[in-house]
Design a protein around this nucleic acid. Structure first.
Lengths: 208, 208
DNA sequence: TGTACATCAGTGAACGCGCGTTCACTGATGTAC
DNA sequence: TGTACATCAGTGAACGCGCGTTCACTGATGTAC
C-alpha cells in the first residue's frame, strides 16, 4: 500500500508543483537564464522567500523541470520508435504520436527544445544526460528488431541518436505550427514522414 | 571603386562591431533574453546611452548577430553539401569542414544553436528565415546532382532540411567537444560520418 | 584655403524600479509521553 | 485523549545593487560658400 503523506508534506509538494507549473508558463516567452525568482513567486502567489524552501536557485528549478518534461516525453519516444519501423503506415502513426504529444504538453516540448542549447549549464547537462539515456533505450529497442542483424553497437547508437534528434526537431516544428495557419501542421506532418522514410530506407540498405 | 567612408562613419561602424563582438563573448555563458544593455556597453567601454546610437534594444542587436553569424556559416554549408555527395571520402571531408568551421567561429555556432529555439521571438524568426534560405540553396545544389533525377520539389526540400539540421546538430556537438577530453572530438566525427552515410544511402534508394 | 554653421556619436547625471538574499518571525502540523 | 514541546513552510521588512531609459550636453567631423 502507498504511504499517505502528512498534511505538511502534501502541502509542500503542492506548492512545489505550483512553482514548476508557473515557471513553465513564464518560460513560454523567455529563457531560463532570464527567469526571475520573484517573477515565479509572484505567479504562484507566495512570498519571494518561500522559493528557497523548495529550490536553491532558478537553475535548480530548471533541472527539476527537465525531469518532469522528459518524464512525459519518455513513453512517447519509446512508442514512436517501436512504431517507426519501416512501413508507411507505421511512420504515419509515429508522426501522429509526436503531434499528439506536442498538443498534450506544448510547454514541456518548448522547454526542452529551448534549454537543450540554452544558457544554463546544469540544465543543459541534465537534458543531455536524459537524452543520452533515451538514446540507449531506443538503441536497445532497435537491437530487438530482426532488421538489426549484423549491426554493431556504434551503428545502433548512431541510428538511435538520429531518431531522438529527429523526433525533437519534428516536435519543435509542430510546436511552431500551433501558432500558424492550419495548413502548416499538414506541411510539417508530410515533411516529418518523408524524413523518417528516408532514414528507414537508409537503415534497410545499411549493410548492402 | 569602393567609396571610402568618412571618419565619422568609419568610427561608428567600428563601435558597432565592438558591440557585436562583446555581445558574442557575453553570450557564451547566457542567453540573449538575459543579456543586459549595460553589460554590453561596460564590456565595450562606452557609456550605456551610446548603445542607442546603434540598436533599439538587445533583441535588435541579436538580429544583427544572426546576420553576422549566418553570413559566416553560409559558405560552409554550401561547401559541405556539395562535398557530402556519397562516397566515404566526400563525407569525411564534409565532416572535417564542419569541425573546422566550429574551430574558427565557435561563438557564432553557439549563438545560432542557442537562439534558434531561444526566448527572443524576432531573433528566432530571423534564424528560421535564414536557415530556410539556406535550405533553398542546398535544394538547388542537390537538384543539380544527377542522382536527383525523378525527385520532386518536396522530396528535394525534405532532404535539404535534413542536411541543414544535421549540420547544425553536428556543429553543436563539436562545440561541446571543445571542452571535453581529446577523444570526444573523434567520437563526434565518427558519429557524424555514420549519420551522413545513412542519409546518403537513403538518398540512393529513395526511388527504388 | 578659410570661415561659419549643421550634424551627430558618444557623455554623464538622474530617475524610478525590480531584483536576489538576509533575517527574525508565526502558526499550523508533527511527535513524545 | 490531552498536554507540552519541536519542526518547518511560508511571511514580511529591509538591504544594497544594477537595470533601462530620459535628457540636455559636448566637441569632433562634415558641408556650404
Amino acid at each position: 500500500m502507498s504511504h499517505t503523506l502528512g498534511i505538511r508534506q502534501a502541502q509542500k509538494q503542492k506548492t512545489r508543483q505550483a512553482f514548476l507549473d508557473a515557471a513553465l508558463v513564464l518560460l513560454e516567452e523567455q529563457s531560463l537564464s532570464s527567469l526571475g525568482l520573484r517573477e515565479v513567486t509572484r505567479a504562484v502567489g507566495v512570498a519571494p522567500t518561500a522559493f528557497y524552501r523548495h529550490f536553491r536557485s532558478t537553475a535548480d528549478l530548471g533541472v527539476a523541470l527537465v525531469d518532469e518534461a522528459l518524464g512525459s516525453l519518455h513513453p512517447m519516444v519509446r512508442t514512436t520508435v517501436s512504431a517507426a519501423g519501416d512501413s508507411g503506415e507505421r511512420i504515419t502513426r509515429a508522426v501522429e504520436l509526436i503531434a499528439r504529444h506536442v498538443d498534450a504538453y506544448p510547454a514541456h516540448v518548448r522547454f526542452i527544445a529551448r534549454e537543450r542549447h540554452g544558457g544554463v549549464q546544469p540544465v543543459r547537462e541534465a537534458i543531455r544526460d536524459q537524452l543520452a539515456r533515451f538514446a540507449e533505450e531506443v538503441k536497445a529497442e532497435l537491437a530487438n528488431d530482426p532488421e538489426a542483424r549484423g549491426w554493431n553497437e556504434d551503428d545502433l547508437r548512431m541510428l538511435a541518436h538520429l531518431y531522438v534528434d529527429q523526433m525533437l526537431l519534428t516536435a519543435s516544428l509542430f510546436l511552431e505550427s500551433l501558432e500558424a495557419p492550419e495548413d502548416e501542421r499538414e506541411r510539417v506532418t508530410l515533411l516529418a514522414r518523408r524524413q523518417l522514410r528516408l532514414i528507414s530506407i537508409g537503415r534497410h540498405h545499411w549493410l548492402d
